[in-house]
């Protein structure tokens, strides 16, 4: 959610900054700021391209050593849908005698709005998927009902996904033009997380023929579910 909540404000701040630069360039070019076009490295008067200045020259006119502008995250624009769509698939292997589940593969297809950086976007989905694996198979806070203490507050008793529990993860982004904010960016860390656990739950059901109705899907629960099968 960081990218969709911050990029619209960043983009707005950048627009304000550009206005300030145009105002600095205007007197030197003898034109109104609205008549100046800034493109690549050049500031140019729209109706007389011979009147131009380099970006560096405009910057030299900055009083002091920096120019700053602020932007804010305005409410989303009306009339656009913000729903996210995605599909999450999981392939699991269940040791039917021991009740141990291993996730072999997760395919995450996400309606992702506009992707700003594909590599870090994939990192985001990997993180969501892996937290989803933990949510599905390992993680839970165990409270002793009588003592009122959490008995597994440590990093060996509270089980976090480790490197050997990582499935093969395939991430596909479907970029959709989306007009609800000024960058078209959507968040997808959470969808990848929650949906992964659900997909793993369904895959376990498919594998053993009975659903395991609570998370995490630990071996004791798988074995108990299989007992009810006959």
């Amino acid at each position: 959610m960081t990218t969709p909540s911050t990029t619209p404000a960043v983009r707005q701040a950048a627009a304000h900054l550009k206005e300030k630069l145009l105002r600095l360039a205007a007197p030197a070019l003898g034109a109104e700021p609205s008549d100046i076009e800034a493109r690549n490295d050049l500031f140019q008067v729209r109706f007389d391209p011979s009147r131009k200045m380099s970006f560096a020259d405009v910057c030299r006119r900055i009083p002091g050593d920096s120019l700053s502008a602020e932007g804010e995250r305005v409410p989303n624009y009306e009339g656009y849908r913000r729903d996210q769509a995605g599909c999450q698939f999981a392939e699991v292997e269940v040791d039917a005698e021991l009740g141990i589940v291993r996730v072999l593969r997760v395919v995450a297809v996400h309606d992702a709005g506009q992707i700003i950086d594909p590599l870090t976007a994939r990192s985001q989905v990997n993180g969501g998927v892996l937290m989803g694996v933990g949510y599905a198979l390992f993680e839970t806070r165990r409270m002793d009902p009588r003592l009122g203490i959490m008995v597994n507050p440590t990093m060996d008793d509270y089980k976090l996904v480790g490197p050997l529990d990582v499935p093969e993860i395939e991430v596909r982004f479907v970029e959709v033009a989306n007009g609800f904010n000024n960058t078209g960016v959507m968040g997808f860390g959470e969808p990848a997380h929650v949906a992964t656990a659900a997909a793993i739950g369904c895959a376990v059901y498919d594998a053993i023929g009975v659903p395991v109705r609570s998370l995490p899907i630990t071996p004791d629960r798988v074995l108990a579910a299989m007992e009810t099968r006959a």
Partner: peptide
């Protein structure tokens, strides 16, 4: 252990 899930990368 990596909580953020960087393992694949």
């Amino acid at each position: 252990i990596c909580r953020c899930g960087t393992y694949p990368h």
